[in-house]
């Protein structure tokens, strides 16, 4: 149990678990912000996979770290854009629940 930190499988399974939690939250949450939180979990699961392969299998150990930094930048941009979409939706519908947003033409 104490040598888990030096095995590739531990990190891969952690990434899979976070991904599964993200999908679970994405399907279960009735509001847009809750779904955004779940998407962040999915992204961090993917990042953990990149970092694990970078540490154990990559010949050049900077590649995975740089990809993870880019994933963080994309995730930050995605969070900013989607939160402003959420606020715009809230201003028009007075609700951020997905079931209320069924009209295509505003």
């Amino acid at each position: 149990m104490l040598t888990l930190s030096s095995q590739l499988n531990t990190y891969l399974i952690m990434g899979a678990v976070l991904f599964g939690f993200g999908i679970f939250g994405l399907l279960r949450r009735p509001s847009l912000i809750g779904m955004l939180i779940a998407v962040e979990l999915v992204l961090s699961g993917a990042s953990i996979n990149f970092m694990a392969f970078n540490r154990f299998l990559a010949p050049d150990p900077t590649v995975g770290q740089i990809i993870t930094l880019f994933i963080m930048a994309i995730a930050a941009a995605e969070a900013a854009i989607s939160l402003s979409i959420v606020i715009a939706v809230y201003r028009n519908y007075k609700s951020i629940e997905v079931e209320d947003l069924v009209e295509l033409k505003g």
Binding site: L8, N9, L12, I13, G15, A16, V17, F19, G20, F21, G22, I23, F24, G25, L27, R28, F53, L57
Partner: peptide, 23 residues
Amino acid sequence: LAAICGGAIAFALGYAAVNGTWM
């Protein structure tokens, strides 16, 4: 249903990760 979906995806990914042969 969401728990089943997420659990199945996590299990499949974990299974593939443990049983796959990496370089």
